[in-house]
Amino acid sequence: MRPRRVVPRDAASLILIDSSGPMPKVLVGRRAAAHRFMPNLYVFPGGRRDPGDHRIKALDALPAPVVDRLARRVAKRRLACARHGLAVTALRELYEETGLLIGRLDDQHDDRTTSHGPALLPALGQLRYVARAVTPATSPMRFDTRFFALFTHEAGIDPAAVRDSRELEDLRWMAIDDRQSVPLPAITATILDDLAARLAMDPHLSFEPGVPFYYTVRGRFVRTML
């Protein structure tokens, strides 16, 4: 009997960049040992898309080039989720996992208050779309993850304000060229390599460049551009 095909679930991550020093740093945290997916590895804040994320209102819109890239290689019926919804996912997960808020909390409308407290009104206007990766078919859990990037100074974030959570432990700012201090998933290291190369050529991360898309075909790793 053939093994059941696991369909990748939409997910999003945010790569926060602290460019205040000579070497850019990115925020990573260790996934708890109890996680089924990538336990004890250091990753960017993020997680799977909630069904209602695409309906959450934002303080501002995604830049047009980002909207265009997010729509590539996505079925038309899923465009709302793949564009606005995944950007919201990245910022919602950041807040839940690190306490860092990109936007503001809405405590004025009872119908938008969640079990976690006031609902998030995310600010999307400075997000860059920098990578997309699909978990290999051999994995028992699969995600189609879009990676966004944002500079801390653009969002008014104090890098010292991060706090650990049940989802991400030992949060730390890691030099973007560091591959030795903590255990990283191979795909995270690959994304960091590409992002470091892009930052070297484009320190402000303009919105227009193509986006690397990583996936596997018959066990072979593929990197193409969106």
Results as ranks from 00 to 15, higher is better:
1 M>Q: 12
7 V>K: 09
7 V>W: 04
9 R>W: 03
12 A>E: 10
14 L>K: 03
15 I>E: 04
18 D>P: 07
23 M>A: 12
26 V>M: 09
35 H>L: 02
47 G>E: 07
50 D>F: 10
52 G>E: 15
61 A>G: 11
68 D>M: 07
71 A>V: 08
74 V>F: 04
77 R>W: 08
81 C>Q: 15
84 H>L: 04
84 H>S: 08
88 V>I: 11
91 L>I: 10
92 R>V: 05
93 E>C: 08
94 L>C: 08
96 E>P: 01
101 L>R: 08
104 R>N: 09
109 H>D: 15
115 S>D: 15
116 H>W: 11
117 G>T: 06
121 L>Q: 13
121 L>D: 10
122 P>K: 02
124 L>D: 03
132 R>D: 12
132 R>F: 01
133 A>W: 09
135 T>E: 05
139 S>T: 12
139 S>G: 06
140 P>D: 08
140 P>G: 06
142 R>E: 07
145 T>W: 00
145 T>K: 00
148 F>W: 03
148 F>P: 09
149 A>L: 02
154 E>Y: 02
155 A>H: 05
156 G>Y: 02
157 I>D: 01
161 A>G: 11
163 R>C: 13
165 S>L: 02
166 R>P: 11
169 E>D: 13
173 W>R: 04
180 Q>F: 04
183 P>D: 07
184 L>C: 07
185 P>M: 04
188 T>Q: 04
192 L>I: 08
196 A>Y: 04
198 R>D: 11
200 A>K: 12
201 M>G: 15
203 P>V: 01
204 H>D: 15
209 P>F: 01
211 V>G: 03
212 P>Y: 08
213 F>C: 12
213 F>S: 13
221 F>Q: 15
221 F>K: 13
223 R>L: 10
224 T>F: 00
